[in-house]
Design a protein around this nucleic acid. Structure first.
Length: 275
DNA sequence: GTGCTTGTTGGCCA
DNA sequence: GTGGCCAACAAGCA
């Protein structure tokens, strides 16, 4: 599920109540797939007794500092979520990592286990974190960079290109559809077929969707919305795209659904056209 | 039972 | 080496 703004939402769910408080006990399901490539027992030893430090979200990843040298990385995959529970929590089957503090239990739950937990001990942030592409909302995300990337992937459908994390970090299935719908571009069109005007429109809507999603879903500053999606306006494709029979919020015409770029894709033929 | 699923990766092929 | 496609991963839900 979680894309850019949702990842930030979940980060805040841990960070707002948990930052600064000591982790007294760490529960891990060490043999679970979410710990692939990570020594879960070493992670458990390293976190116990350390305070949860500052954290950040980037693309679909999160990084929590623990103590002076610990870096806890979390990717939520398809079905992962973070939440807090009372410190008396008894971890369930899918609660692969739980950090118990005095007041709360910080829970990472992931039924499908496509998510991932990483741990790095050292003075500097881990390599995988530093390799994440610069944010869409940064100055590095330029029209020229998007143009060059679309050209490189010129035979791929736009939908598939927007899902490439190396250029569109944090964009997932629904954000890609939202961006293309706003830019009035059909998801199946080959990336190399866009005019300069269309590329600029795509670039602009990438930034708009990211900016608005961050506010609507993750909230501003220390504000955390009560739940995902409560702040999303009806004017977005997002709230109409999931079920068959949905209608385009701009044209009122029926939405179409098909597999494009290997993923379920929803678009408005009346607004975006066919190819 | 069937057929989906908001993500990523590795293998295959051109 | 690069780009493009697809199956696999696992569990829950309709």
């Amino acid at each position: 599920m979680p894309e850019l703004a949702e990842v930030e939402f979940y980060r805040k769910r841990w960070a707002l109540p948990g930052t600064g408080a000591v982790i007294r006990k760490v529960h891990v399901h060490a043999d679970r797939k979410v710990f692939r490539g990570t020594d879960a027992q070493a992670l458990q030893r390293a976190l116990t007794g350390r305070p949860l430090g500052p954290s950040q979200a980037a693309a679909k990843q999160m990084l929590f500092r623990t103590g002076d040298s610990g870096w806890l990385g979390i990717h939520l995959g398809m079905s992962g979520e973070l939440f807090t529970a009372p410190a008396t929590l008894n971890p369930g089957r899918h609660d692969h990592l739980v950090l118990f503090q005095e007041e709360h239990a910080l829970v990472f739950r992931d039924p499908r286990m496509f998510g991932r937990v990483l741990f790095h001990d050292g003075p500097a942030a881990p390599d995988w974190w530093r390799r994440i592409a610069p944010p869409i909302l940064s100055d590095a995300f330029t029209v020229a960079a998007v143009t060059a990337f679309l050209r490189r992937r010129r035979r791929s459908p736009l939908k598939a290109v927007l899902l490439q994390q190396e250029r569109f970090p944090g964009v997932g299935n629904w954000m890609a559809d939202e961006i293309l719908w706003r830019a009035a571009l059909p998801p199946a069109r080959p990336a190399g077929a866009l005019t300069a005007t269309e590329v600029r429109r795509l670039w602009r809507e990438c930034r708009q969707v990211c900016r608005q999603a961050m506010t609507a879903i993750a909230g501003k500053g220390d504000h955390l919305p009560a739940d995902l999606n409560v702040g999303i306006p009806r004017s977005w494709l997002f709230l109409h795209r999931w079920r068959d029979g949905g209608r385009c919020p701009r044209t009122g015409k029926p939405l179409a659904r098909a597999t494009i770029g290997g993923r379920t894709t929803c678009w408005s033929p009346a607004r975006q056209g066919r190819i």
